[in-house]
């Protein structure tokens, strides 16, 4: 449009449009590269782990206890510990978290105390996980005298995951339209009956999805469990909640910390197991989301 001039053009613009567009292209490419770098790093990590760990991914990995020799070492006690830790944590955190979520979303009066609780939850979500480990050490291991037991670990994880469960529960509940609540109340239901038979039922898939995602975060947590004193070397089967225990990420950490190359590769194999576990939990959550979600 070079030929166009306006009667009003008292200013000279040095448009340099080509140069401006070129600069814009550079920004776009740089921004894309930033994302691709992240993805490249993820893929490198996965390939590295698979190359190192795949040869060690054999039956003994699941049937053997840890040992001084890499060839004889396995994840038996760690897998038991991780599974039971998740079971006990879920049993405690789901009712507490969902209950607290319902209370805050459906019943809580708008007052100082409610606001205080909400600020607390927001802040707890930002507290480093190792601090929860110190809390667990002081409160459950020493204070309640539970020792370095599975139940002390599960209690610690419960407090750690709680804010996430509360937040996802509230989001899920909020998605249920107000009209549904009004309809139930108009039939003579109490507020609790409305929440129990309608709001909670309709938001359950979303809550479950959130719970699974929160648990998949918990299963990879290491620092708080080390702090409460979960052990790295456990050569017997878990018999009850008061037993000492170890979990997958702690066993991996232990093997990475040992000098022998064999243990490092064993750690890689352990990482594969951990990642597959995580991936299946996430896949389950996505499946739930696609299958059971109600679209209002």
């Amino acid at each position: 449009m070079t030929a166009i001039t306006s009667s009003l053009r008292d200013i000279t613009f040095e448009q340099q449009l080509a140069q401006r567009q070129r600069r814009g292209k550079i920004l776009e490419i740089a921004a894309l590269i930033a994302i691709l770098l992240g993805i490249a790093m993820l893929l490198t990590l996965l390939v590295d782990v698979v190359i190192d760990g795949l040869p060690w991914l054999r039956p003994q990995l699941f049937t053997e206890f840890p040992s001084r020799f890499p060839e004889k070492s396995g994840l038996r006690s760690a897998i038991q510990g991780s599974i039971w830790l998740m079971v006990f944590t879920s049993i405690m955190v789901i009712p507490i978290g969902v209950g607290a979520g319902i209370y805050l979303e459906e019943f809580a009066p708008r007052n100082r105390l409610t606001e205080f609780i909400e600020i607390n939850i927001a802040n707890l979500a930002g507290v480093p996980s190792i601090i929860y480990g110190l809390l667990g050490l002081g409160l459950f291991v020493r204070g309640l005298g539970l020792g370095r037991s599975l139940i002390a670990g599960a209690l610690t994880m419960t407090l750690l995951v709680l804010p996430i469960i509360i937040v996802t529960t509230r989001e899920a509940i909020r998605a249920v339209p107000r009209s549904i609540r009004l309809a139930a109340l108009a039939l003579g239901a109490s507020q609790w009956e409305t929440a129990r038979d309608h709001v909670l039922v309709y938001s359950m898939p979303a809550i479950l999805t959130g719970v699974i995602l929160a648990m998949s975060r918990a299963i990879g947590e290491t620092a708080p469990l080390i702090t409460i004193g979960a052990l790295t070397y456990i050569a017997f089967d878990l018999r009850g909640p008061l037993d000492i225990f170890t979990v997958l990420p702690i066993q991996i950490f232990n093997w990475v910390s040992l000098p022998q190359k064999g243990f490092h590769d064993l750690a890689a194999a352990g990482i594969i197991v951990l990642l597959v576990l995580l991936l299946s939990m996430n896949a389950l959550a996505i499946w739930l989301r696609n299958r059971l979600f109600i679209r209002w």
């Binding site: 205080f116 607390n120 109490s190 609790w192």
Partner: peptide, 25 residues
């Protein structure tokens, strides 16, 4: 309704106890 309300209110307070627990310990 009353019983449930008391219970879930206590659940909501767990977060407050957590904060006090951290600071206390």
């Amino acid at each position: 309704q009353k019983t449930v309300l008391v219970i879930i209110f206590l659940f909501a307070l767990v977060s407050v106890f957590t904060t006090f627990g951290i600071i206390g310990v």
